[in-house]
Nucleic acid binder design. Structure first.
Lengths: 198, 198
DNA sequence: ATAACTTGCAACACCAATGTTGCAAGTTCT
DNA sequence: AGAACTTGCAACATTGGTGTTGCAAGTTAT
């Protein structure tokens, strides 16, 4: 959990505080994106002034949160080897990995790319990997030949988003969710022959 | 376009102003949910004080917007006869109708149910109609027998949401979008036999 | 032990957005 | 035409959130 643009190392207690603030921010902001610094501070168990000492501004806090989540997001996708593993395998792996991150970091990951160049690059990279994976899936015959890849990607993102909200009980297995997502993406929910275009 | 809790009728010019404000609010808020009254007023071509004369508070404005959109939403679903028409037909009709409303009223419809009892009832009613329709679809063999109906409804909502964002060019036919949604929902995007569970 | 660091607290300055009012000029309705 | 209504404008009060500072008390590292 390294913070950016922080020239000198923090003492252990400060390090803990930063962690607590980021985690509290995620919790509070995911339930209310317009929450105040006061609420975040309270949830983190620190004084509001302390939050301001660690993060120059509200924006800086949110950016740090985003950067942190983005790094994990990138790692989740990359470690599924979407460019080399068989498309279906990679799709499943990436889905499971991303779900693991997205559950618990929903707010941070829902942020649209901020101006931070590092974050923007990571997002773009993930997007590109996703597109290449879908391209390969198409060529491998996993996707129907007439599939609109832009639509496919958006449906995929949306399904992951929905699945991530699903964790009503914590025991809900990520692998189960990933299966549900991939299955829904590929087969849909209809019986064979029930669709509009036969 | 009746406003609630407005005992006396408005003069024609005032009526137009209210319309302009609501439409401007939708436009502005859909691109920036945190937009100020000033920005909304400017987009509506009126002074900020006028907005405050017509709507007691910011909340009142957003509520009016939500109520207005909710009424259209309800009408869109009900007019598809989801309780009597053949499931697949009703599904398609409802999808097309809702898309027509949702394109252009995206912000107002994305609001989570406010405390207004009328709005809450309308939302609940739509939800119930949707659930019954899916139940009938299941029994008619349109959906696979093992389908989780709660998941189905969420996927359906999500697909509609995504499709509504798609109107890059305005000429994008709503019927085409509805077909895409229903098709994706029922068949998914994969080739037959490409899924995880065979 | 002691120097360096971190925190809570209280107090403050600041700003942007909300909401109000009075009045003059313009519009609608009959 | 005249009454009733609506609007823009300027000015103002208020509020809530942001960001700052100084200091005393507590913690960490060496």
């Amino acid at each position: 959990m390294e913070r950016k643009s922080q020239q000198r190392p923090l003492r252990a207690d400060a390090e803990r505080t930063v962690r607590a603030i980021l985690e509290a921010a995620e919790r509070v902001l995911s339930s209310n994106p317009a929450a105040t610094m006061e609420q975040i501070a309270e949830a983190a168990g620190v004084a509001r002034t302390t939050v301001h000492r660690r993060f120059t501004s509200r924006e800086a806090l949110v950016d740090a949160l985003t950067a942190w989540a983005t790094r994990q997001f990138h790692e989740a996708v990359t470690s599924a080897h979407p460019d080399s593993a068989p498309p279906l395998i990679a799709l499943y792996q990436a889905t499971a990995n991303v779900l693991r991150v997205k559950i618990g970091w929903g707010f941070a990951m829902s942020r649209t790319t901020p101006e931070d160049p590092e974050v923007a690059r990571a997002h773009a990279d993930v997007l590109a990997q996703c597109d290449r994976l879908f391209q390969r899936a198409l060529e491998a015959g996993v996707l129907r030949p007439d599939t609109d890849l832009a639509w496919a990607r958006r449906v995929y993102y949306a399904l992951i988003h929905e699945a991530a909200q699903n964790r009503s009980d914590e025991a809900d297995d990520v692998d189960e969710l990933a299966t549900l997502v991939v299955d829904t993406l590929l087969r849909g929910l209809g019986r064979q022959g029930s669709s509009l275009s036969p």
